[in-house]
Design a protein around this nucleic acid. Structure first.
Length: 560
RNA sequence: UGCCUGAUAGUAUAAUGGUAGUACGACGGUUUUUGGUACCGUUUGUCUAGGUUCGAAUCCUGGUCGGGCAACCA
């Protein structure tokens, strides 16, 4: 069963390290989200990589919240992140927070000050930016850079003690103002923020910057392989510098390309905007590329893991086709979901030779993909049924294997019917299709000898339940909204959500959230969180692959 | 015009000096009580110019193109 997949470049590094005996062959990774938003499919790639690496090489993974900026962070996000990682199927070794290390980080800063490798700068943000120079011109030192160790020690202590307002002073590393790497031009280590922190409360009014927190946190935890995305490549020099100056455990940073996917955006900032401005219901709106949105939509966790496996890990920028994700979702759902019938755009079918008032109970397989079967359910049948409007055509073209006057189809799990006539209303809309059925053609005991090309789904008018069905389409009209001119929101797909009322077979009253079902010929559907006993609400997870399109004959290709 | 990165079918991803392969997509076919699934087939690729070598996607040099870097964000 195990399909051979070649190693990605991170796995090659890990295997090389293990065989070289580095860290005694130990593998400890970490997933380090900032709790300032919900996790999306891009994070899933990172989660699957970090936890997957640990699983594959007998290691462990820590969940560490990078909570160094209290003004943007919130416990709501911490809770959602934990829930999402668990739902994806991963267990972390330890639940940790960068804020757990605030005391140690402060001590590290003092150590650097004492080594004359850090100083307190009173400049404004604008002044500091100006003094940093440009990529082609070196930065220039200011008078604060030469403060004495004693003065720096005292000033930094005063910063911590709350003697200064926000922005009055910062602590900077003294590295190299002329470095071609902008991140080495005396980067900020601490800034003053009189803000309440979700974990440390009001204990601190100075908070470390990412660069002074992340690498040290990795080192404290003795992380062996610290994986992040490409944009952190220039930070690696700083990462290494702090670890070296402080003589800490030599964690190493490795960078990979982030996931981009067509027809969506993958930035927490942009996703937050969609939520705040009400373009979507919430972070878990089924159109969102968030883990919670995909869960609500009905994507199985296993299919997301499979997707992350298939997209690979490399260093080049990439744009993954949404169709690959949908393939993974369908592949999983096809194997694992029960089949049911639902009519989304109903038109009445009357069986003229089936006695009115008579009814019978038919059976249908739950899942034909399961070897040996997966049980059956009962389906009521009588002379009036709802069928899909698109399954009838007044003037059917060739190769239309559905209904039209004179055409026959199999009613799924029931009889073969032949269309005799139809009824229109004053506006010319077809309202009823009249058929005759063949009594000997009953599913499972067909002795009619008749073969029909098409099979359509249906539900009994008398027994059908109504349900609200939410049909989703891609969130954006263009493949890469972020690269288009103007605001990305201009490219939202106005038809990304369509709400309709459908008729569904009675058994669907037993549908459960998180246990998607296939509506035969229509797609996969998952009960929504807003569904109630009185009002069923389904989300369309994904359509079935549709190979046939009316009026779109395929021109012959090739030859010659 | 500085530094850092990267470039293989439409999209991803392998080939680690020795036959350019796989998946998704698209297209066609077989099977089918889902125009689904499954199975089979077709299609399309090494950014460019030199060099090293018996042999280069791979090594070297120059160019081209893409991405990133000058937040008190991560």
């Amino acid at each position: 069963m195990s399909e051979e997949r070649s190693l990605n470049f991170i796995e090659e590094i890990v295997e090389a390290d293990i065989s070289a005996g580095k860290h005694d062959g130990r593998v400890l990774t970490r997933f380090p989200p900032e709790p300032n938003g919900y996790l999306h499919i891009g994070h899933a790639k990172s989660i699957c990589l970090n936890f997957g690496l640990a699983k594959k090489y007998n290691g462990k993974t820590n969940l560490r919240f990078d909570d160094t900026n209290p003004v943007k962070e919130d416990v709501e996000y911490v809770d959602s992140i934990k829930a999402d990682v668990k739902w994806l199927g991963f267990d972390w070794a330890q639940e940790l927070y960068a804020s757990d290390y605030f005391d140690q980080l402060y001590d590290f800063a003092v150590t650097l000050i004492k080594a004359d490798l850090a100083y307190v700068d009173d400049s404004t943000a604008e002044e500091i930016a100006a003094q940093k120079g440009t990529p082609t011109e070196p930065g220039t030192p200011n008078q604060f850079r030469s403060r004495s160790v004693e003065e720096n020690l005292e000033l930094f202590a005063d910063m911590k003690a709350g003697k200064y307002p926000d922005g009055a002073k910062v602590l900077r590393a003294k590295v190299d103002l002329a470095s071609p790497n902008m991140h080495l031009r005396d980067p900020l280590m601490y800034r003053i923020k009189h803000a309440h922190h979700h974990r440390t409360g009001d204990a601190w009014c100075i908070y470390p910057m990412y660069d002074f927190a992340h690498g040290q946190s990795d080192a404290i935890e003795k992380i062996t392989h610290s994986i992040c995305t490409l944009e952190f490549i220039p930070h690696r020099a700083l990462y290494d510098w702090f670890i070296e100056q402080l003589s800490l455990f030599p964690s190493h940073q490795y960078e990979m390309a982030r996931l981009n996917m067509t027809y969506t955006v993958m930035s927490k900032r942009k996703l937050l905007k969609l939520v705040e401005e009400g373009h979507v219901e919430d972070w878990d709106d089924p159109r969102m590329p968030t883990i919670s949105g995909m869960r609500r939509r009905g994507y199985p966790a296993a299919s997301i893991r499979e997707f992350c496996e298939r997209i690979g890990v490399a260093k080049r920028e990439n744009m993954i086709d949404l169709s690959l994700l949908e393939f993974c979702v369908r592949e999983d759902l096809n194997k694992n979901t029960w089949r049911r019938m639902a009519v989304l755009d109903p038109i009445k079918l009357v069986i003229t030779n089936y006695p009115e008032g008579q009814s019978e109970v038919l059976v249908g397989e739950n899942n034909p993909e399961v070897e040996g079967g997966d049980g059956e359910r009962e389906i009521p049948f009588n002379n009036e049924l709802w069928i899909e409007r698109e399954d009838f055509m007044e003037e059917p073209p060739k190769k239309f294997f559905r209904l039209g006057v004179g055409l026959s189809v199999r009613l799924k799990n029931a009889y073969i019917v032949k269309c005799e006539s139809f009824v229109k209303d004053a506006d010319g809309n077809v309202t009823e299709v009249h058929c005759t059925y063949i009594p000997q053609s009953k599913s499972g005991s067909d002795t009619s000898g008749i073969n029909v090309k098409g099979t359509i789904h249906w539900v009994s008018v008398a027994q059908a339940k109504t349900a609200e069905v939410r049909l989703y389409d891609r969130l954006f009209r263009v493949e890469d909204p972020s690269s288009e001119d103007g605001d990305f929101k201009e490219y939202l797909n106005p038809d990304s959500l369509q709400i309709i009322n459908a008729y569904v077979e009675p058994d669907l009253a037993n549908a459960e959230m998180g246990k998607a079902v296939q509506f035969i010929r229509k797609g996969y559907f998952n009960l929504d969180k807003h569904s109630t006993a009185d009002k069923l609400v389904f989300n369309r997870t994904v359509t079935l692959k549709d190979g046939w399109k009316v009026g779109a004959p395929q021109p012959p290709k090739g030859g010659a």
